[in-house]
Nucleic acid binder design. Structure first.
Length: 285
DNA sequence: GACCAGGGCCGGC
DNA sequence: GCCGGCCCTGGT
């Protein structure tokens, strides 16, 4: 890896983040080396414990990647704050202790989470990649690595619903075409969302076609970094039914319940008890 | 090959 | 507020 910068970081695990369902353009290129595209740039990072090699300049690391990975936040604090009596959440937090909430681009996350509805993670990745290959600008980074940028609102608005269907988006093509048009025309301002509080941002997002409560909350959490957002999807719903029949104790994690949501989501997807639970679910009754 | 479910939303009632 | 329909495909 050329042009690499060595950094020591606690509570960061690239494998966990890449499989946490918050980002869809991060891959394990080779053992312990991950690559991703964000903000129109290509990045490789190699991890060995708490030592990381970034394929970027120090300047780019400071201005782009350190904020992107939310490295100025102490995630050890979040994990330690978990209720001692809550054994499920303690396990989940320990299991996903390398997860951080990335600060991703608003437009990209908006489109990506419209795609995510009633969909599964491998296919979401494919859909996003199809979009980038077909409508994204091709580029080459300083080390000669080729990649596609995420296409802007203009490109997707111009494509239109019928053409977007070629990316295997299914019925979500119409949502994306309509939403892209609304933003490309200036009828809706993404920038305006950044100055709003959580509730107002969520309400405004839901004016967009294909954005309901859950998707709006994901956008708030993963792009606007409103870490109080606690999106409830099909996985979280099942965990709540099993472990929190009275509802999740949001008040114990004031202003950062979204971190707990992410620990739970990741644990439910990749934790050790999943296979047992899936088998249980598949049993005829 | 069949069947279920997937980081839900919309429109009609 | 509830319910059916929805594109497509990964997993079993």
């Amino acid at each position: 890896m050329k042009n690499s910068l060595e950094v020591t970081i606690e509570n960061l695990d690239l494998a966990q983040i890449s499989q946490s369902g918050q980002c869809f353009r991060m891959w394990e290129k080779e053992k312990s080396t991950f690559c991703l595209v964000a903000f129109g740039k290509y990045l490789e990072v190699r991890q060995n414990g708490q030592t990381f090699l970034f394929s970027s300049s120090e300047e780019e690391y400071r201005t782009i990647w350190r904020p992107y990975f939310d490295l100025d936040t102490d995630y050890g604090y979040f994990a330690k704050s978990v209720d001692r009596e809550d054994h499920y959440l303690r396990e989940a937090a320990a299991f996903g202790s390398g997860i951080r909430i990335l600060r991703q681009e608003l437009w990209e996350i908006l489109v990506t989470f419209i795609i995510s509805q009633q969909n599964n993670i491998p296919r979401i990745r494919k859909c996003v990649e199809n979009l980038c290959r077909k409508y994204g600008e091709p580029a080459i980074d300083g080390n000669g690595e080729g990649f596609y940028k995420f296409p802007g609102p203009d490109a997707l608005a111009k494509a239109g619903e019928e053409e977007l269907r070629d990316c295997n988006l299914g019925y979500r093509s119409r949502y994306i075409a309509n939403t892209a048009a609304k933003i490309a025309s200036g009828a809706f301002s993404l920038e305006g969302l950044k100055d709003m509080d959580y509730e107002n941002a969520k309400k405004a997002l839901m004016e967009l076609d294909g954005v309901g409560i859950k998707v709006a909350e994901c956008i708030c959490l993963f792009a606007l970094h409103r870490i109080e957002a606690f999106p409830v999807d099909t996985h979280i719903r099942q965990v709540l039914a099993q472990h929190y029949p009275q509802g999740f104790p949001l008040q114990k994690y004031p202003g950062y319940a979204g971190i707990m949501q992410q620990y739970i989501f990741y644990y439910d997807l990749h934790g050790t008890d999943r296979s047992e639970r899936v088998q249980l679910k598949n049993q005829p009754r």
